[in-house]
Design a protein around this nucleic acid. Structure first.
Lengths: 200, 200, 200, 200
DNA sequence: AATGAATGAGCCTTCATTCAT
DNA sequence: TATGAATGAAGGCTCATTCAT
């Protein structure tokens, strides 16, 4: 299996660095190969074409991203807390890998529609995770029962995403992780969280 | 002033159509010229370069967009209602111009970082409008006093934007305007709106 | 019409020279452009792609080639004489344009199957001309009535073509036109020509 | 001697199949290796380079081809009959190995000039065999004494070759061997054969 | 003001060959 | 002998921009 050989990850990591530092449209395959320390042709032993590098990059990174969040979610035992963990983890992971933050928030969005559709497929798992938390909150009475699950998910993702993008466009000058709690407060309130009111 | 000559708007409208129908990367200058009914070279009598077309497009369309919203806001006399009007107007205008919706939500985001920074400059006025509403809400006690103005604005914009993008990516198959009220309910709650509670 | 603008022929003539002097696989578009005195991009204003240059080259040159032969054929009033004129013209024209001889006999045959099929379509007109002469010969009793028209045509074309190819591969060291009469004698005999016997 | 080791022929036979089924330009060394059931690198233990495979292929197949014809020629005792046997054998052998027919008539001709010159060296033996028959015919009075030996050989080879190529390009839809007698009739007449006249 | 023919820089991908195992 | 992962050179084509008319 190609995905498990060391050069696979090596090339993907090189792609993250090259795209972050040069921008999507200046990330030539030859530059990625050089950064990875392999020949141009070697790229094509592991990836079908340039687009495949980018999809794989997103799959690999997003896979780890979501797995990490899922693992951390086990610590929390109600929907509101899970939401907080999710936001903290989301911000935390992107804070820890600033190259990745640039790539996912700015550069990869310059790809064409087809690639973005494929990227959205990868995102689906993450969005479903959010909906599961919302579902749980509605079921156990934490969240308002008239909450529209899909809209709530769009709000949560939209808010988190906009926050991270703004942070990246401001060149990551302030702490993103400090935003987690106030963002969570707004999200919980928006969901009609009863916990919030009790805590206040 | 070039902006007032008829061909200026003619070219911009052509650009919207061409980009919406062909995608950003397939929107060659020659295609825009053809759609506008002018020669390729004529484009350069009105715009410095291709990027300038796109920025001007955004300025023109966004200008009208924000002006319309500002005008409508006068009907509302509290922050929560203003928020509702803003969301309704935002959704309404993009519902009415589906080409524009595709261009702003999907295609123009494929532009490079520099262009996106310039587009963000244009967006600034709209974001400030949002902040003014939030400010008003906090001042008059409608909204929670611990609300972070900047984060609240990122939430509102992020939520609206994600909602529209999802709608566009679903090929505008459902009514976007019907989303305005439930989205507004969540936003108002997130801001700690007292009005919401009263109304319920 | 692109085919009538001067640069169209200019590029085709450049292609003949470049292919003859460098070989088919060393005839890069940039080399052809340079030889034609135009920019690389200009090629693509006149031709869809590289293959289109080669097909057009064959069409243009073959068109003239066959037209010339057809015009000369009017001087002859029986099938055997027409055959002689055809062979003389075929040899004569390729003797007069040695670059073209190299291109048609050696280089263009290195093209892939698809291109060769398209080239064969162009050849069809010439082959039909041959069959018409054979038909005439059979009808008026000059040629043997049991002659297979299609096989006779394959013989005539195959013989002429092999003769020219051998001449080109021998670097055109001897006179090709001097071969016309003896080749014609063989062809006429093969067709069972009565004229030949009388003349002898 | 490498030529006698089993993998040598194994690779050559693989090359014939791969070239016939994929075309010359799609016959990569790796594909030939796979078809032969060996590793890519193994090819280079038996052949100097890719060109060497093709030349060896031609040598091996052409060697058998000519040997078979020479053996069969012993049955015939005059030039005209020998010509008939040669044509029948030529058509028969290619009818029996359709892959080989595709390779020799269409695919191998796409090779570059140098390779074709080397292939022509291999062909020489066959062409000399033809000339020997013509010589014999002229000497014993069967053929016209003013026959140009070299031109006659070019006619015979050109005619046979064109006939086979036309048959291959028509996807071998009709019987090639049935063409042998009429082709022979034409060739014999072209040589001024006295036998033909007697037989008629 | 308007035209549109001409320009030319820039990059992804293939595949014959090598060489460490 | 045999393997197969790794190499790296090379070229067709697009399209934003210019400028002579």
């Amino acid at each position: 299996m190609k995905r498990n050989r060391p050069k696979f990850k090596q090339i993907i990591d090189a792609a993250v660095v090259v795209i972050a530092e040069n921008g999507y449209h200046q990330a030539q395959v030859s530059k990625i190969a050089k950064q990875a320390g392999v020949a141009d042709g070697t790229i094509y032993l592991y990836f079908k074409n340039k687009e495949d590098i980018l999809i794989s990059l997103f799959q690999e990174k997003m896979g780890t991203f979501v797995e990490t969040i899922e693992a951390e979610l086990k610590q929390a035992d109600n929907a509101s807390d899970k939401l907080l963990v999710l936001i903290q983890q989301h911000f935390g992971q992107l804070s820890d890998d600033r190259h990745l933050a640039i790539v996912t928030q700015l550069e990869l969005r310059q790809s064409n529609k087809e690639l973005r559709i494929k990227i959205n497929d990868v995102l689906k798992g993450y969005l479903e995770l959010m909906e599961k938390i919302i579902d749980e909150g509605i079921s156990n009475g934490e969240f308002s029962e008239d909450l529209d699950k899909k809209l709530a998910r769009q709000m949560i993702f939209g808010t988190i995403d906009e926050t991270v993008t703004t942070w990246v466009m401001n060149e990551q000058k302030y702490s993103l992780t400090q935003m987690a709690v106030p963002i969570h407060t707004m999200m919980a309130r928006a969901c009609g969280s009863q916990n919030i009111e009790k805590k206040v």
